[in-house]
């Protein structure tokens, strides 16, 4: 399943990039991220509690930064497994310099397995909602000041 969207972050591109490049800052804005432990260069072990309402699971898995082209392009690959199945996703962020603010074009390719496939009809909506939460959080951090 492919989803995409655009967002505007209210800070110059360099500051946005700096924030994205800080794994802990990234982790703190990722919905449900409970642990992020580096295991190698650009590789992390992650524990996420993702989902919505009652449909929530704890996923253990890996997060890998697969592309980093400062200050324009950033790609991550995530895979996680829980009792309900697995999620694999590739996400790409592209930053566009708009002076005092930054345009973000994002896209994701999501693949699920196990019982999660039964909810496939809702996954794009859920993914967009979670992405929205992620960017809101980033924007809040940017506006709070310190990158």
């Amino acid at each position: 399943m492919r989803i995409e969207g655009t967002e505007t972050l209210h800070a110059p591109r360099d500051r946005v990039w700096a924030l994205l490049d800080d794994p802990q800052a990234l982790a703190s804005c990722t919905p449900g991220m409970q642990e992020l432990r580096p295991t190698g260069p650009d590789e992390f072990e992650a524990v996420l509690s993702i989902g919505i309402a009652a449909v929530r699971g704890t996923y253990k898995g890996k997060l890998r930064i697969t592309e980093r082209t400062p200050p324009e392009r950033y790609a991550v690959q995530v895979e996680g497994t829980s009792g309900a199945g697995f999620v694999r996703a590739v996400g790409v962020l592209e930053l566009e310099d708009q002076g005092a603010q930054t345009g973000v074009r994002w896209s994701g390719e999501v693949q699920v397995g196990g019982a999660l496939t039964l909810g496939s009809r809702m996954i794009p909506g859920i993914a967009r909602m979670l992405a929205g939460q992620f960017f809101q959080c980033l924007d809040r951090k940017l506006q709070e000041g310190s990158p």
Binding site: A54, V55, G57
Partner: peptide, 21 residues
């Protein structure tokens, strides 16, 4: 916690282990 009323959505979600309250 999760509220159970008629259970027509919650019980299938429980049985599928998609909901884990």
């Amino acid at each position: 916690a999760k509220v159970l009323a008629g259970g027509q959505s919650l019980v299938p979600l429980l049985n599928l282990r998609l909901a884990r309250p």
